[in-house]
Design a binder for these strands. Structure first.
Lengths: 202, 202
DNA sequence: ACTCTATGTTGACAGGCGAAACTTTAATTG
DNA sequence: CAATTAAAGTTTCGCCTGTCAACATAGAGT
């Protein structure tokens, strides 16, 4: 590779480099069969060096997932931040943003929702995941208050929205939304179907 | 274990035994990190024996996934077969059956929808997955014909239903449908929300 | 200046995948 | 019915991974 051999013995910020390298690998690989040794190799560092920064592989995975949720929350926030959007529009934009994120970061998205990243073990990861969920709840509450959404139990609506978006993302990721089975714009179409169930007056 | 040492050199039906053993492991493990050697060990056979029946690990995985889809299609079929069910009821029963299946067979369900079981590589697997999808399409077509469901593009409705059910199943599997976040009966509630979007007259 | 400690390195071990070479058994066939 | 052949299991091997332990180095703090 292009790694200079004259790198000083101490890397400087290996922790960050490892994270960045792993994120790059996740971005490049649809596969996401991500080995710690490979990360070390690409970072130009010995195979055991990562253990000075992460107790074991799962800790690194958790950290990556946490970063993923933070990024996801950010893109969803910006997608839904426009104040003149109707709740319906906000829901749509947020959902699309989430699914786009999944398609742009397939490996990372899979990791975030895989059971490998044990959310119960890492409070920071759990919090990051919850912040994305909080955005959804906010949109729903807002929509109910303004009379745009039906006054159904908000938990049910949240479960429906979350499941729908997550399900669409995974199906899209796996290439299972083929046009001959599901039409030309399945994501948009499916979200419209769900929104008909969320919204009043149609 | 209880394996008799006087097993004849030839196992008899190792292929079937391997599949059954692997299924049992999937049923027992939430984890589903399933090693071929462990299967061989539990089947009381040397670690290379499986290769006489499956070219590599992925082939066995594909076969397991295929069986999973066949079973899923069966439980969904029986759940929706009652002729006096309304389309709405049929959808609900089919969806619940699918989610119940996922909860009863977490490892198998995860495998079925993981990218490890590459559906494009195995036509039989693809066909099995499609047969489950066909059930959904049938219910939707029926519902539209009888005027129970809205006359929206059926691909969009199918994508919505599929994504919703799959998403709910995965979230439930990951234990992410906690009551304080999402209410007491999130699955039923979420399905009702979606059905409001599918059905006419409400 | 000298030590201490965080950070890297090398080497080792267990365990997994998969290939090759070998052995045993069952089936086919002259 | 005996002999050959092919199927099904076994052992051995190389290469990979995660993880640990022992050692090396350099930068920080007294």
């Amino acid at each position: 590779m292009s790694e200079l051999k004259d790198r000083p013995y101490h890397h400087g910020d290996l922790r960050r480099t490892l994270i960045d390298t792993a994120l790059a690998m996740l971005a490049a690989d649809q596969n996401w069969t991500f080995t710690l040794r490979e990360v070390a190799r690409r970072a130009g560092v010995s195979h055991a060096a990562p253990y000075k920064h992460f107790r074991d592989r799962d800790v690194l995975l958790c950290e990556l997932a946490r970063i993923g949720f933070a990024r996801l929350a950010q893109v969803m926030t910006t997608a839904t931040s426009s104040p003149e959007f109707s709740p319906r529009r906000k829901f749509l934009e947020g959902a699309q943003a989430c699914i786009d994120f999944a398609l742009r970061n397939p490996g990372l998205y899979r990791l975030m929702f895989s059971s490998d990243a044990d959310k119960t073990a890492d409070p920071a990861l759990h919090a990051a995941a919850m912040s994305a969920f909080g955005l959804l709840l906010g949109v729903l509450e807002d929509g109910q208050k303004t009379g745009c959404f039906r006054p159904a139990p908000i938990g049910a609506q949240a479960a429906a929205g979350w499941a729908q978006v997550h399900g669409l993302a995974l199906l899209a990721l796996n290439g299972q939304l083929l046009e001959e089975k599901v039409g030309a714009e399945p994501v948009r179409g499916a979200l419209d179907v769900l929104l008909d169930g969320l919204c009043l007056g149609n």
